[in-house]
Structures are given as C-alpha cells and as structure tokens.
Amino acid sequence: MDLRLNWVGFKTLLRKEVLRVVRIWVQTIVPPAITMTLYFIIFGNLIGRRIGTMDGFDYMQFIAPGLIMMSVITNSYGNVVSSFFGAKFGKHVEEMFVSPMSNATIILGHVCGGVARGLMVGTLVTVVALGFTNLSISHPLITFSIVILASLVFALLGFVNAVFARKFDDIAIIPTFVLAPLTYLGGVFYSISLLPEFWQRVSLGNPILYMVNAFRYGILGVSDIDIIWAYMIIIAFILGLFSLNLALLNRGIGTRE
C-alpha cells in the first residue's frame, strides 16, 4: 500500500466530510443542540428536581454525561450513514472506488468525518449542559478516550448501515428501531442499580451502557460497570466493525454490481 497516497486521500476525505458538516450546519449541528437543550429543561430541570439525587449527584449532573454521549454517538452514526449513502445514491461514491485509494482509507475518511461531527455536537451540548449544571472532569484521559472510541463505534456502524441501504428509508430503520431503544435503555437517564437483578443482567448486553457509564465515570467518577471491561468491549466493537466494513467493501457488497 502506498502510504503517502492513502494519507493524502484520507486528508481529502476528512476535509470534504468536515466541510460538508460545516456547510449544512443548520441541519447537522443545530438540531441536536436544540434537542439536548429540551432534554435538560424537561428531564433535568423540571422532572429532575422532583427526582432528587442519583449515585450521589443531583439528577441534572447525573444525566449530563449520558446526554452528551447520546448526542455524540447519534451524530457520528448519522453523519456517516447519510454521507456514504448519499454518495452511493448520487453515484459519486464511484469517484473513490475508481481511485487507487484503499478501501481502508475510504472507511477511515468517512468514519473520522463522523467522529468530527460527533465531537462538534458533543462540545456544543457540553456548553449547553454547563448552562444548566456544574460539571468537572474527574478523569480527563478516560473522558476523551471514551468519547472518541464510542464515536468510532457508531460511525463504523453507520458505515455498515450505509453499505447495505438501498433507499433512504433504509438509513432510518436502524436509528429508529435499534439505536434509539438501546440508547434510552443504556443508562442515560438512570443507574442500572435501580433495575431488578434480571434486567440488570439484560442491560449488560447493551454496548451503549458501557459507553455511557465509562463516560460518566470520566466526568463524575461513578459507574455501574467496570471501566477496563468497557474499554475492552468498545475496542472489540471497533475492530470487529472495521473488519466487517473492510470485508464488505473488498467484496463489493452493496457497492459494486
């Protein structure tokens, strides 16, 4: 593999993706910020005041890390799925496939574009959260590494969705029927210690739980799960999903006739 060629190709793809996010910021950046503000107002401020504390923190502080993580993963996913499926639909994905750039670079370029959007939105939501509550970062390294790794997982998942999608409806199915339920049941709004033991065990099968809790541990210093275990699961997902995407592109599934 020509590393220099692929490095330039990667930079080109990443630049293109970031410019796309910035160009249509009203569609990409603003809506999640508004949605999260509403969450903070309704769940944090209005309802949260009646809930009191959770794991020793007031409810607004407790849900803030989960809401930030939720915005990061949904936007990382949404960016890659819409960008790559859009390129497939408009046939300009062919610009990449006829070039000598490797399939791994094509995946990384799109995925890092998704991560970039996730981080942009995540930063904005953090600023919004600071308007409602005080947040200090207990473990900065864990906070930043988890947010990037979780964002990578969902960007890679978005790529898988885009590869298989044949029509626009197909890119909405996974976020609606899989991503949203897993996110809401992933401990964003509650600690799984509140659940009966059986549902606690079921919740441990939800990968989003590990991401939300690891991120919460990074900020608040509390978590329902073991952090090392969370890292291992997230990294396993990244490796598995990257390999899956690479195999799909190499075999031309969903992209070549």
Partner: peptide, 15 residues
C-alpha cells in the same frame, strides 16, 4: 473546483 481537487486527492496528489 472541489469536485476536481478532491478527485486529485483520492489519487494522492497534494492540494
């Protein structure tokens, strides 16, 4: 311009 310049990037040509 972007369409042409991006295509060059995919072939490893610096900006």
């Amino acid at each position: 311009l972007n369409i042409v310049v991006n295509q060059a990037g995919y072939y490893g040509i610096d900006r």
